[in-house]
Simulated scan of single mutants.
Amino acid sequence: MAEKALRIVSIDTGSFRRWAVETARILGDVEFLMPATGVAELDRDHRGFVRAVLDMEADFDGGEGSGKEAVDRFADALDKLARQAGEHFTREEALLSAAGSPKLAAHAREHQEFMDTLHRQAELFRNGRLNVARRLRGRLLSWWVDHAARVAAEDFSAAGSEARPAVGAQGARP
């Protein structure tokens, strides 16, 4: 019996990242795409937000109760995500400000754009556009993974050690 050879196919980094985000079911599926900022609290926030998005989808898809109850849970989860993001962004911007980061204004603009998009999409969902849930999951997860990997890590790298508080800075990964 002839054995089939395993064929390795080359895939570009962007395509692989999109595939990993689109197929993610648990944090470990995308965590490797989010390098540590060097600030343990911010890294916990990033991972916590990704977990919350993944949990929100699982609850919406397979949660107990009626369709109305699933819709209510999803709406509540969106509110919780907005609060979490707002608190995280406040912490992150305060650290960048204290460090005198030249990237603070751009970083804050990205945060505001994210919050505006989240609020717009949540409003559409609450007004009966339930198909928003699928697209929103992808948008939230993709944005957050990109934020942790590209923006937060670069900004904290550019801000230098001043942006990394001495307390709690060790061990960015649990």
Score class of each variant (00 low, 15 high):
V39K: 02
D155A: 09
A98R: 13
P165Q: 08
I11L: 10
I8K: 13
A40D: 03
E154I: 02
R139A: 11
N131C: 02
P174E: 07
E92H: 03
E154N: 14
E123G: 11
E64G: 13
G14L: 13
E93Y: 06
S97A: 15
H111D: 05
D72L: 11
R135P: 00
R91A: 01
G38R: 01
D79I: 04
K103A: 12
F60S: 08
R51D: 00
F74P: 01
A5G: 06
L81C: 05
P174N: 06
E162Q: 15
R91W: 02
L42M: 13
E123R: 14
F74G: 05
F16M: 10
P102S: 08
Q121M: 09
Q121L: 12
A82Q: 08
G160L: 12
S157K: 15
Q112C: 02
V132A: 04
T13I: 09
R44Y: 00
L6H: 07
L78N: 11
A106W: 00
E154R: 13
F60R: 15
A153H: 10
A2K: 14
Q112T: 08
Q170M: 15
V53A: 04
G138D: 12
V21S: 01
S157C: 08
L130M: 06
I8C: 05
E64A: 15
L81G: 07
D43W: 03
D55T: 01
G65R: 13
G48N: 04
L104M: 08
A82V: 11
R120T: 12
S15W: 02
R137M: 10
G168P: 06
R109A: 12
G65S: 11
L95G: 00
F60I: 09
A169N: 03
A99L: 04
L124E: 10
D79C: 07
E22G: 09
G168W: 01
D155L: 01
S97V: 00
D72H: 09
A5Q: 15
R83W: 09
P35E: 06
